[in-house]
Simulated assay, not measured.
Amino acid sequence: MKKYRQVTVLFTIIGFMACNTANKQSNPSSLDKFVRLPDYFSQEDKNIRSNDYTLFKTVVLNGKKDTAQVSGTDSATVHDLLKPFMDADLNKPSLRDEYDTSSLYDPFSGRKSVIYKSRGKQTNPSEVIMELDKQGNIQQVNIHSYTSNLVYEFRQDLFYQQKKQVRMTTYQKIAFLSPKELEINVTIAPKKGM
C-alpha cells in the first residue's frame, strides 16, 4: 500500500510538471527570438489611419515618374504601403537560427541600433536594422533583401521612419528580359502641413 502512494505522488508531480511546461510553451511571444515586426507595422497601420495624415507618394517605374496625394485614412493604401514590412517576420519557424543579432548603443543620446543579419546568402530578408529611442521604441527600420540564381535576380531595400517617411527600392531581373526598377517614396505628414 505504501508503494502505491509513492507511485501516485510521483505521477501527480510529473503531471503537474507537464502541465506547467505546456502552459509556458503556449505563450507564443515568449518563444520569439526577434522583435515582432508584423505586430509593430500592424500597429503603425492603425496609427496612421486613425490620425490626421496625408500621404505624398512618388512612384518611379523604369524611369517614368508619377505622383499622388492620398488620405492616410485610406486603409487599402496604407496597408499596401506597409505590407512588405509586415512580411518580414524573422520569427517564422523556417527562419529559426538563420540570423545573428548585434547591437550598437549610443551612450550620449541613449539610442540603440539593433541589427539582424542573415547567416545564409539566400535568406530573405538578408538584413534588418532597427533604430530604437532611449525607451526602446522603434523609430526607424531598414530591411534589405537579396536573391540571385542563374535566371533570376531580386534586390529590395525598405526604409521606414516612424510617421514620417516610407521608401522602397526594388530591382528585378529575369534572364532574357529587361530589368524592372521600382522606387516608391512616401512622405507622411499631418493634414495641417508638413
Rank of each mutant, 00 (worst) to 15 (best):
residue 187 T to E: 05
residue 26 S to E: 04
residue 110 G to A: 04
residue 177 L to Y: 04
residue 46 K to E: 15
residue 6 Q to A: 10
residue 110 G to K: 06
residue 118 S to Y: 01
residue 16 F to A: 14
residue 153 E to Q: 14
residue 6 Q to H: 09
residue 170 T to W: 07
residue 69 Q to Y: 06
residue 129 I to P: 00
residue 58 T to N: 09
residue 115 I to G: 00
residue 5 R to A: 07
residue 67 T to Q: 06
residue 144 H to N: 13
residue 6 Q to N: 10
residue 43 Q to N: 08
residue 158 L to H: 05
residue 44 E to F: 11
residue 174 I to H: 15
residue 95 L to C: 04
residue 149 N to A: 08
residue 32 D to G: 03
residue 59 V to Y: 00
residue 104 L to H: 06
residue 111 R to N: 11
residue 98 E to Q: 14
residue 176 F to D: 13
residue 138 I to P: 00
residue 171 Y to G: 05
residue 183 E to G: 01
residue 87 D to G: 08
residue 162 Q to A: 05
residue 193 G to A: 11
residue 79 H to R: 05
residue 78 V to C: 12
residue 158 L to F: 06
residue 189 A to T: 08
residue 143 I to T: 02
residue 47 N to P: 03
residue 189 A to M: 10
residue 22 A to I: 15
residue 35 V to I: 15
residue 188 I to S: 01
residue 126 S to D: 09
residue 98 E to M: 00
residue 56 F to G: 02
residue 153 E to A: 11
residue 44 E to T: 12
residue 96 R to A: 15
residue 3 K to T: 03
residue 39 D to A: 11
residue 75 S to R: 12
residue 82 L to K: 10
residue 124 N to Y: 01
residue 15 G to I: 02
residue 152 Y to I: 05
residue 70 V to E: 02
residue 95 L to R: 02
residue 85 F to Y: 12
residue 171 Y to F: 15
residue 87 D to W: 03
residue 6 Q to T: 11
residue 40 Y to H: 09
residue 144 H to L: 13
residue 45 D to A: 12
residue 164 K to M: 09
residue 177 L to A: 00
residue 40 Y to C: 03
residue 107 P to Q: 04
residue 1 M to D: 15
residue 94 S to P: 13
residue 24 K to V: 15
residue 77 T to R: 00
residue 157 D to G: 00
residue 110 G to Q: 07
